[in-house]
Amino acid sequence: MTDPLPPRLVLSPGPHLRAEMTTQQIMWWVSGALAPVYLWAVAIYGLRVIVLLVSGIGGAVAGEWLVNRLRSQAQTLSDGSAVLTGLLLVGTISPGLPAWMPAVGGFLGLVCAKMLFGGLGYNIFNPALVGRAIMMATFPVAMTTTWLTPRLGAFMGTDAVTQASPLGIMKLEGLAKATEILGMGPEYYWHLLVGLRVGSVGEVSVVLMLLGAGVLLWKRIIKWYIPLSVLAGLLLIALCSGIPLFHLLTGGLWFGAFFMATDYVTAPMMPKGQIIFGLGIGVLTGVIRIWGGYPEGICYAILMVNAVTPALNHWFRPRRPHWEGAPS
C-alpha cells in the first residue's frame, strides 16, 4: 500500500491568523530587554547577583524538568518560559539574600503555580510572583532585611553594606522622619531615576527598565494598556500620601507594571479588562504601601488581581462582529 498523497486542501477550525513571533522568540526578547537592568544590578551590587540568577533560574528549570519527567511527557524547557520565570523572580528579591533561597522559590513557584495546572498557558497566577510570595512567607526576615547599599563598581570589591530600603524606612519611621533620613531633594529623586538606591535586584533603575519596556512596546510584545493603568492607579492613591513622586519612583512598580503584570497568561485578554486589571493593581499597591502591613505591595497586588482575571475575561469577551446583512 502506498502512502496517501500529501493533502492539497487543508481543512481546520479557526483561528487561522498566524502570529509573527513564536512563544520562544517572545520569551527571549523579554529576557533580552531585561539584560541591561541585570547588568546594572551586577554593576552596583556585585557578582553575587549572578549567583542569585543562576540559583533562581536553576530552581525554575529544575521544577519544569522534574514535572515533565514525572508525567513522562516531552520536555518544554526550550520555550524559554522557565528561564524567564527564574529571571523575573530574582528581579523581585533583595540582592543580599543567601544564594540557595531563590532556587527554593523558583522551584516551588514553577511547580505550584504553573506545572500542576498543566504548564505554560494554563496557570492562573504568575509563577514568579507565587515563588516570591512563598519565599516571603517562608523566609520573612531574610527577604526584608538583606538589602545592599549600591556602589558603582561593586563587582571589584567584596564587602557589602546592609541598609534598609526606602519603602521600608517609610513604613517603619513614618513620613516625617523618613523625609529627614532620605533627604528628599532633587538629587535624591535623580538617584531614584537612574537607580542608585537600595532595592530589589531588578527594580532599581527606572531609566533602564523604560529602555527595556520601550523595546517590548516597539516589538509589540506588550501593549501600553496594562502598564499605564498600573501607574495611573498607583498615582491615584499616592496623591493622598503627599509624596506621589516618591511612590512613583520607588519599589518594584515599574518592574511589576511592565514585566510582571503584562504576562499574557495571567492578564485579561481584552483592552477594557486590561485597563481594569491595571488600575486594580495600582490601587491595591498604593493601599498596601500606605495602609498595609508590608512596605511594598505590588507583588501581592498583582497576585490578587490575577485571581480576578478569569472573571474579567468572562465579563469582557470578544464579541463576534455583526454588520448589516450578515448571515446569522
Binding site: 498596601i288 498595609g292 497586588a301 490578587m304
Partner: peptide, 10 residues
C-alpha cells in the same frame, strides 16, 4: 497566598 498581602492592613 495572594490575600496575605492584606495582612496588617489598617
Amino acid at each position: 497566598l495572594a490575600f496575605l498581602g492584606f495582612s496588617g492592613l489598617q
